[in-house]
């Protein structure tokens, strides 16, 4: 969509919308300006099935150790996150990531560099 007066591309991002129904919000593309909280929330959503016992998943959770997820499932989750946030995380970078916080920071760093 372009501005009829100037021909300039108008940016319409989800964070400008007022969304009253959370179910609809989930079907929208993630906002262009994802906050750290958005990223962590999305990671935790992917990791929820692998929660070990009652221990909550937090930023300091060590993904491969504190959860019941195996290395292949971690790589598959990374692939999903790559598409959610439109970044690519090379495998050697994934190998250096241990905690939820580190994963979130990596995604945010890559987004900032785009």
């Amino acid at each position: 969509m372009s501005d009829p007066g100037t021909g300039e591309q108008l940016l319409r991002t989800a964070h400008q919308l007022i969304v009253e129904n959370d179910d609809i919000a989930n079907t929208l593309e993630l906002p262009r300006l994802a906050s750290r909280l958005d990223v962590i929330r999305e990671i935790c959503r992917h990791l929820a099935p692998y929660q070990a016992g009652e221990r909550p998943i937090v930023g300091a959770t060590v993904i491969a150790k504190d959860l019941t997820i195996d290395s292949l499932a971690i790589m598959d989750m990374v692939m999903e996150l790559e598409d959610s946030f439109d970044v690519s995380i090379p495998m050697n970078v994934v190998a250096e990531i241990h905690t939820v916080d580190q994963l979130a920071d990596t995604i945010l760093d890559l987004r900032a560099k785009r």
């Binding site: 692939m79 598409d83 690519s88 090379p90 495998m91 050697n92 785009r114």
Partner: peptide, 26 residues
Amino acid sequence: CKMTQAEVVRFKHNDPSSLESRLRRL
């Protein structure tokens, strides 16, 4: 992949659009 210094990225199995988004991001 472990033996090369190149950056390695996986795409979804048999999914050309998943490959395309990764090539585009480069």
